[in-house]
Nucleic acid binder design. Sequence first.
DNA 1: GCGACAG
DNA 2: ATCTTGTCGC
Length: 242
Amino acid sequence: MDNIIETPESNYGQLTIAEATLIQEKLRAQVNLSPMEGEIKTIAGADISLDLNSEIVYAGMVVLSYPDLNPISYSLVQTTNIFPYVPGYLAFREIPALLKVYEQFPVKPDCIMFDGNGILHKRRLGIATHFGVLTDTVTLGCAKKKLAGNYADPGETKGEYTLVTDKGDTIGFALRSKINVKPVFISPGHRMSLRDSMDIAMKCLRKHRLPEPTRRAHEFVNKFRTGELKEGYHKLEQWSLF
DNA sequence: GCGACAG
DNA sequence: ATCTTGTCGC
């Protein structure tokens, strides 16, 4: 039973929703939302890309300098998908591949931003939180749509935000990341506070709706799927025009 | 039964 | 998630 939790890459594909729920409830007790310690010098964005009708998963992470936000390295891994997409269980679909992606980094990033939620989740265990607890890393989530909770629409100015609450708990923020766009949903994953997640997300905003880490991860992973980038760990030169 | 529903 | 055409704005 416990080995299911220890080896997600080999067992998540066989899980039932009931078993997955038990794992989330067990991991929940290990989540750390205390203020982040230490300075962030690098932040990674994580994402996956899929083919239309294929089992292939193209997963990747891009490490950016912080607060400059320039890509300095990236890791790409191709795997076969096993777990289906079920709202609330995204982690079981993407984490096996992302663990392999993470393992390829000779030097780990100080923080990782996921394309999905942290504690902004019915059981407070979105993909960012799940990955953080599993690997004991500092993580946060940035989703493009609301998964759980309630919120009021934030003001139209870039940087305005409102709280997302659920059953009396504040579980994240609806952030207007750019003028005239729908808000994105920010929440801490692991080893950082709600305030930390907002501070970091805000500092990662540039000209686009999505913060640079996840925007870059999405970009790189798509280039990987279309063949423009190759699998493996790659270090970018400082003068690279990325 | 009717909505809600990360990617 | 992915597929698509046009359109608006910097």
